[in-house]
Simulated scan of single mutants.
Amino acid sequence: MPKPDKREEILCSALHLIAEHGFHGAPMAMIAERAGVGAGTIYRYFENKDVLINEMYKELEKRLTAYLLEGYAVEQPLRDRFLHLSTAVLRYCITNPIHFKYLEQFHNSPYGVAHRRDKFLGKSVQRDLYCELFEQGVTQGTIKNLPMVVLCSLAFGPLIFIARDHILGFVTLDDKLINNIISACWDSLKS
């Protein structure tokens, strides 16, 4: 079995340590130790901790996007696409709790604030599936004409909280409950 490369070991170690201890609780020396590399080795792959944190986010975003796109059909009705994306987001989060914890850390930090600002102000190069869906829905009159940040809050807020509560053991999600939650999110958005 081939040994993972050092860059992947460093990313994996950073993912777990940051998810567990937060950005400040996971110094580069601790990441290096967990990855089994010298502290200086990290800097061959990542200029600094900020670059490492952002690279890990980009990697997780790629994985999540690939998961969301599995079975996603642009020609489907708006509601069906929303249900698909939201179900996929929730399932990804609950089946990848370490990824979810890292993403939570990221989105609730200055890194995530800058990322969201760029997305909502149109400075991000990458288009967001949800933003496209919401823009189309508002144009069609299917979705309430609210600011994009509000639409995203109505769609994601409940998913984030319920994923967290599932991971913490406060609620057990099954297919029926997931479907009901996603339908409730849709009901909060539709005109």
Rank of each mutant, 00 (worst) to 15 (best):
T65L: 07
A66V: 05
D80H: 03
L83C: 11
V51R: 12
K49R: 15
P77W: 03
E61F: 10
P77G: 08
K49C: 11
R63M: 12
E55Q: 14
S86D: 12
V89Y: 08
A66Q: 13
H84I: 01
P77K: 05
I94S: 13
E55M: 11
E59K: 15
R79P: 07
V89S: 00
A73I: 06
L83G: 02
T87Y: 01
Y57D: 05
K58D: 07
P97T: 12
L60Q: 12
Y57G: 01
L83V: 14
A66C: 10
L52F: 04
E59R: 15
L69D: 04
P97E: 11
N54W: 00
Y57C: 04
S86C: 09
V89T: 05
L52C: 08
Y72V: 07
F82G: 00
N96R: 14
I94F: 06
V74D: 11
C93Q: 08
T95P: 08
L68C: 13
K49L: 09
E75G: 13
R63C: 03
L52M: 11
K58Y: 06
P77V: 07
D80S: 14
R63W: 08
T87C: 03
R81T: 05
L68N: 12
R81Y: 07
Y57Q: 07
M56T: 15
Y57F: 13
A73G: 04
R79E: 15
L78V: 10
E75P: 05
K62L: 14
L52N: 07
P77I: 07
R91Y: 03
L78F: 09
N54F: 00
V74S: 03
L52D: 09
Y72N: 03
L52Q: 07
D50L: 04
R81W: 03
R81A: 08
V89G: 00
V74L: 06
Q76N: 14
T95H: 15
Y67M: 05
L78E: 10
S86F: 04
L64N: 08
P77Y: 05
Q76K: 10
R91V: 05
P77C: 06
N96Q: 12
E75K: 07
D50Q: 13
E61Q: 13
L85R: 00
